[in-house]
Amino acid sequence: MAPVLEIRDLQVGVDTGREVLSVLDGISLSLEPGRTIGIVGESGCGKSMTALATMGLLPDRFAITGGQILFEGEDLASMPDRQRRRLRGNALSMIFQEPMTALNPVLTVGRQIGEVLELHQGLSGHEARQRALDMLRAVQIPAPERRLDNYPHELSGGMRQRVMIAIALACRPKLIIADEPTTALDVTVQAQIFRLLRELQGETDTAIMLITHDLGAVAEMADDVAVFYAGKCIETGPVAQILQHPSHPYTQGLMVCTPTMRLGAAALAESPPALGEIAGIVPPVGRFPKACRFAPRCPLADDRCRTEDPPLRALGAAHAALCWKAEEEAFA
């Protein structure tokens, strides 16, 4: 099946005024309709920037400096803004992390959902309101008729995030980017939101890019995983493969950090016991090490790792890792 989203060698830079620093370096991913890709990695490794670059919403001073973002075959990176706006919120939509601040405090819920329908589907105010009501039902908000005229501050965090999802899904997008959609919510609500996303995905065949810190959520939701580190995608592959046979030392470290409870006993049995928590922190933008960016923290690093860029090694049908020693590790 033709991928709905294909990112090819994406480069994003930030202009600090003195120089342009690399934020994302050579990100490549591919996502087919109806599938979910989980993007994981520590804070600051470029997950949100990948999402925002795809949406064309990079913050001030950030810009795409190379590569392509193909959405149904058309390059979003080089598309005129006007054309990209027609896709945004329509065929391509995003759910943000902060349900408390991501909704406009002075507009009603009905208005905020209806707006995209009026804009992209040319519905009248009345029709849009009807569809907004349908959407509130679809995201399982109780007493939706009443909620239509509520303002965001009258809703709980979980309900607000449902409203965000309703906005994102209103135009039946081909692709949803969900950037840590449940981080700000408590655990029971997280599970409900994920279940909801999966159900809605089943109905519409939407592709989802799910950004999260939570490997448990990835195990539950994703078909594929991309692991990010310091602006690079260091391992990609099918979810079972990555969780059970993580090849890159960084991915292995991430597994150890995640409570085994959430990954199941299988992960516990198969993850290499040698690695402890990953020591050190992600280097900030502009201070990435020369060759392998993970080398300073990697227990397996040797001289080659510090002097030569590691290759992207294919490890199976769709499994690849950016590491000199990946192969050996995977089948050790």
Partner: peptide, 25 residues
């Protein structure tokens, strides 16, 4: 603000973002 980013993510034109979403706030 975050909700302005949300408004942009909806595909609204910059003019509607400013006058429809930002102004009242």
């Amino acid at each position: 603000a975050d909700y302005i980013r949300t408004a942009r993510a909806k595909g609204l034109s910059e003019r509607r973002v400013v006058y429809g979403h930002a102004l009242r706030n």
